[in-house]
Amino acid sequence: MNHRGGFALIKATWFSWMQYRSFFFVLAFGWMIPPLVALFVWSAAAGEGSLGGFTRGEFITYYLVLVLVNQITYAQVNWTVGDIIREGTLNHWLLKPLSAIYQALSSELAGKVVYLIFVIPVGLLLAILLKPEIQTTPINFVLSLVATLFAWGLRFAWGFWLAILAFWITRADSFLALQDSLVFIFSGMVAPIPLLQGSLQQIANILPFRYMVGFPVEILVYDLSNKAILFGFLMQLTWLAIAVLLSRTLWVKGIRHYSAVGG
């Protein structure tokens, strides 16, 4: 693998992205809105009292952290890789002496930095305005960081295998839209997972989506038991392994298919 080339590419991509930062700020703004709406809804619902065991301040904390985690883990590679396969730009990738995953990773990392330049100040501003309440331990903080990292890997790999379905299916982006709906319900975005009713909560615990967004937030904001944290990490790593395996297999098969059909 050509690592130096990879880093150069990441740097170059980042510079070119800064050129279009207003474009990415707008995208980042768009992704912030659904959790913010949920924040307003739940804090209005909690009023001065509490709801399902959570106070207004706790809802605010939960969602502000969620906005941040959602932004860090959001895998836009979902959309770009599919377009690249459909439009035939993939040929440029394949002609370079560089593993294609670098192309995906470079836009991913470059994007992350630009988005965070926007989201962190906005998040801080909201925190000052809305006064969240937070109490957490250093251990939980570290665990939450680790979980965020895994969450990002999981969301990236998961998005990647869905995106490369574009090799076979012309409208693979519909799967991505389906995924976004599932993420919205089951990742802790529309409501914190502990507030989901009965079977919905059980489904959320099994599906991978909670481990892409909600889980790291819960570690930080809620007092999860050790057992719950351990279960969470196990689920997260299992799904991560599945997603990586799927991505690799489908990529190899996809490239073979692509060269056979000729794009």
């Binding site: 619902a45 709801l51 519909s174 389906l178 709906s181 319900i185 409501a191 009713q197 919905l200």
Partner: peptide, 30 residues
């Protein structure tokens, strides 16, 4: 793009389900 019909149908129902579910979850608590 004929396949788009089914995709759009899927999206429409998905959107609806998600939106209604969000309200059901909310009003399940209050």
């Amino acid at each position: 793009y004929r396949a788009n019909f089914w995709v759009s149908l899927l999206h429409a129902f998905l959107n609806l389900i998600v939106a209604v579910l969000a309200l059901v979850i909310l009003f399940g608590q209050t």
